[in-house]
Design a protein around this nucleic acid. Sequence first.
DNA 1: CTGAAAGCGCTTACAG
DNA 2: CTGAAAGCGCTTACAG
Lengths: 341, 341
Amino acid sequence: MPVTINDVAKEAGISTSTVSKVLNHWTTISPETTARVNAAIAKLNYTPNARAVSFARKSTRNIVYLTSLGKDEAYRNPHMFDIMCGVHKELTKHNYTLALVDISDEAYPGESVHNVIEGKCADGLIIHGSAVTKELSKSITQQNYPHIIIGHPGFESSLCWIDTNHGLAGQFAAKHMISCGYKDVAFIGGRKTDYISMQRQKGFIGGMYEYGYHIPDIHIGYTDSSIPESCEAACSMLISHRPPQAIVCENNTIALGVIKAVEKLKLKVPEEVALLVFDTYPYSGILSPKPTVIDINVYDMGVQAGATILRKLKNPSLLVQSYTTLPIVIQGQSTQPLRKQ
Amino acid sequence: MPVTINDVAKEAGISTSTVSKVLNHWTTISPETTARVNAAIAKLNYTPNARAVSFARKSTRNIVYLTSLGKDEAYRNPHMFDIMCGVHKELTKHNYTLALVDISDEAYPGESVHNVIEGKCADGLIIHGSAVTKELSKSITQQNYPHIIIGHPGFESSLCWIDTNHGLAGQFAAKHMISCGYKDVAFIGGRKTDYISMQRQKGFIGGMYEYGYHIPDIHIGYTDSSIPESCEAACSMLISHRPPQAIVCENNTIALGVIKAVEKLKLKVPEEVALLVFDTYPYSGILSPKPTVIDINVYDMGVQAGATILRKLKNPSLLVQSYTTLPIVIQGQSTQPLRKQ
DNA sequence: CTGAAAGCGCTTACAG
DNA sequence: CTGAAAGCGCTTACAG
């Protein structure tokens, strides 16, 4: 028979409501009563029934994290799980729990969101950006349900989101290259329809331009982000009449392709061609030479997301659409200050 | 104002308790009543309040997944998240939810488990093996709390666990090597204190022995699982007077070290030395040649764990200590049938 | 500063 | 087959 608040009240010789107030740290309770209640709690080894609390309070202190949780997702998209860990960290700190909901096999789009909202099993919702559609956006906005989306949804809306500023990360890439003394720097990215890639590219080109360097079109590559196509793109740049001194790779697969090209052409990194890559990947550590990386602390983004949803709960009218978490440069061996010749 | 079961009852002109019975698919309800209630539910767009249900039922239909959720865990240990996804899949199928609890920064060991059990916020607990201690084992067993541990806890107990059979995986490695025609096969693993490594090694040696091949001590390597030490171990084997035809690498980091050694000695894979690796890693796909892998479908292990905890809930006296999920061989280019000379 | 009482939205014996 | 009523274990106006 589990011990309830009534047992504690009886033991302490005090009313249930007062025990509840002690539990909730009301300031009106006398120190003496508090002490008696605490003694009774300790004696009976009492823990409040979380279900009853959440029911009585009409608040669950639970947040749902909505994302794709299919097989192999952990290998394809480890960043998403790192974000999740950050969210969890922040929520736990404030005595909230985090429940997972999979969006990858819904019967109809928006089903999961609907269930979460209607079932009242959470106070708020954190949604991984890739899962957001316009319909979903509409239903969330209409219900005015506390939410935060990780990653810009890709269209204008009154949704709340946080994201990392990819353009800024591109600028950081430019700044780093300039600081090393590289002027002829190429950028190999994804297709023109790839939002993140284009943001990074724009930021990079803009950053170089600020320092007075114009990147010619032949030094901008668009690929399908596969190893072969990236290798091909890098090769053709490197054997052209004007090979770049350095290549910025928009993601890790592209970097692998570029490394392959470099090996094929027997070029030395970073002496003959320097490399810069966006994002740390599990295998970044095993590449040789160790690449210099423009990294985003996505765990920290998760923490931000957690903090933000809690702010939303306190202040539902809050609009949050913000870029957060500065990119950082992790210096590796694939770039180095150019020696004056 | 959210619509409650009472609103539905009023709308249908029927008592609350009957509505509840319709909701819970009692068989005693007349088709006519059922229809009326369902019409009212549809009309009012009613969804039961999950909190109230769980409170009244004294069951949460929630399972807690206890593991390490620190920063970068997703990169270090993607398998754990793949297991988590499998667990989630199975639980969702049966209308259970999954909540996450981090064990990585508890104030004292066992704190999280204690909170979960005492707070009654879950019906059961799935614990990632690395988090299990003897104290924890004791308190879980004493409380007779429904649980399932993923990975053999490492000591005898009446805990419930599921695991993959590492010895069997080792045997599979031997079988594959034999089927290719290799006889002189080396095994490079972790330290002798590494439980998994030793299981795999034993299985492998035993498997080879069954086919009549004895692995000499010089062909068994113990390393700290680092790239340099594994490279060193492989080198010394390969330049010895009796180099192995093939090397089984107990994990991926070891494999990277061995590959490094092979490159250093300019040996051809698989012609001059074949390689076999345990477990798929995010970067397995980028290695060249693509390694042959003895893999465990850990997502499926998660599914099993989910199914098992649900069985435990129905039948609390069930003891589950079982090896589950067969290893599979994923053929790559690092092994091939030996041509007769 | 403390307590009696209503209520959160369901489920489930029990009676009919 | 249906319904009135008690109860799940708390919280929170409200009264004192």
